[in-house]
Design a protein around this nucleic acid. Sequence first.
DNA 1: TTGCAAATGGTTATCATTGTCAATTTATTT
DNA 2: AAATAAATTGACAATGATAACCATTTGCAA
Lengths: 155, 155
Amino acid sequence: MNNKIRNKMELNKQFRQFGHKMTSGRETTIDVLSETDEHLSAEDIHIKVHSVNPKIGLTTVYRTLELLINMGMVSKFDFGDGRARYELAEGFKGAKHHHHLVCTGCGRIVDYSEFVKEEKTFFKRIELELSRKYDFRITNHLVQFYGLCKKCEGY
Amino acid sequence: MNNKIRNKMELNKQFRQFGHKMTSGRETTIDVLSETDEHLSAEDIHIKVHSVNPKIGLTTVYRTLELLINMGMVSKFDFGDGRARYELAEGFKGAKHHHHLVCTGCGRIVDYSEFVKEEKTFFKRIELELSRKYDFRITNHLVQFYGLCKKCEGY
DNA sequence: TTGCAAATGGTTATCATTGTCAATTTATTT
DNA sequence: AAATAAATTGACAATGATAACCATTTGCAA
Ligand SMILES: [Mn+2]
Ligand SMILES: [Mn+2]
Ligand SMILES: [Zn+2]
Ligand SMILES: [Zn+2]
């Protein structure tokens, strides 16, 4: 399937547009993020990248993630366990806008995309008013729910 | 003013209810948090506490903050600058429920409490449905807006 | 191909937070 | 007020995620 090739060329273009080069490490990192539905830490990602391309070091993974964030392809989250988590940003490889339920017992993360439409409407209005009132150009927002998953609230 | 004394006795009771003792360090920490409208880091708090009571160490401040969080008197936030920020929780010393605008340029934090009522309604409904669908007992939520303050988006 | 800026990897440094443990303080009981 | 036992503390060391360094390698335009 030369779908892969087309994809590669797309990526190449993306990087060039931002004044960067495409490298095998960067490509592998994106692949890893595309192929998971988990919320991987930098080290998690490194382990997976490393298993495909053992030459890639952890430092490069950190640098790549930062770059991808700046390019808008990756989102970084803090779920309160002391390490950042990364996922493909909305719109890349079919990733959909969603928010998170975080279990404060076991750390489990649940993606949900219900209410996205209502939420968008709701937040759009709020953002507009807050922007005006506080002279802020709001670019994005974060919503997270905390609680206990079924397993963790058992007694 | 024996308002202070009453306050002290209230605090004392609070601690005892949780099986803890009230100490001068803990009292000073609460005072510091009561008297600021900033979003202080542990070190910020330690500096202020230390200036009142030079015997108190940073470790104790960390421990006290953790305790106060467990007692529901303090909230801990991450605004993405690599250190936690603390503030008095809703309901203590007149602290009001609010959310935050975070400037990604200079790190400035703006409290806002507009829309709290609408938000409560909105989130209550969402939380109910998510709880059901994902078997989660949701206990609280986090909302933050990111963007650029007036100063930072100037050119 | 060649040249050179960009990217990399191994290592060390940083720095917020937590663990350790002997000494001190607190609240309670005589 | 003094004794007691348990909780709290402070100084210091340990931890762990992330960033800085720098010599070497790689991507790509000419
Ligand atoms: Mn997710
Ligand atoms: Mn606040
Ligand atoms: Zn859980
Ligand atoms: Zn700013």
